[in-house]
Amino acid sequence: MRPLATLLTAFAIAASSSALAQETPAPDQPPVPAVDRAAGLSEWEKINAVFSHPRCANCHVEDDHPRWSGTHYGETRNHAFNVQRGTDESGFGNPGLRCTTCHFESNSNVLHGPPGAESWHLAPAEMVWFGKSSAEICAQIKDPERNGGRTLEEIAVHVRDDGLVGWGWAPGPGREPAPGSAVETFAALERWNAAGAPCPDG
């Protein structure tokens, strides 16, 4: 593998593991798992509304194709141009057609132009949200095998601080943003966790 691809792969792995979160100071009070299922589920609904929103779910797919949806894009469909996860599974596309061939550090301000954020890439396939039920997404989030080895606290911080995640609330002209904000979603994750992180019945 060429150096570029190696670098991209390494970056993907780093970004999707807990490595980045380690610098975040631990919260003063470790969450005590209270069991308030109704309150927890209410928080989860807010979180799920974000995770299952097309701005987030379109790039959390199980297969190799990011999705397009929204006004002027027709029904939800595979990203055009044969854009794919990448034969090296990196999530950064293929040689000759990387995600970053079109998606730069910031949004194009032209309607239908490519959105942008740091390190634009596809989430690993195991972190699938697209086409999944609320219960399935919830189970995935809580499963360290499929959430990049993160604690729930680390997930909340990742959602609050990561540039690419944050793009979901500022997706550029013509695109509907994910509901709420990064900070609100962080808070909802904290409260959900505090309430025992209940998942809806699947």
Partner: peptide
């Protein structure tokens, strides 16, 4: 095509499809 061949010296049809769809 130049970018593709810089990374993949002997591309398959699939490599070509994956690089040139844009």
């Amino acid at each position: 095509a130049t970018a593709l061949l810089d990374e993949v010296s002997d591309p398959t049809d699939e490599d070509i499809d994956n690089a040139m769809g844009g």
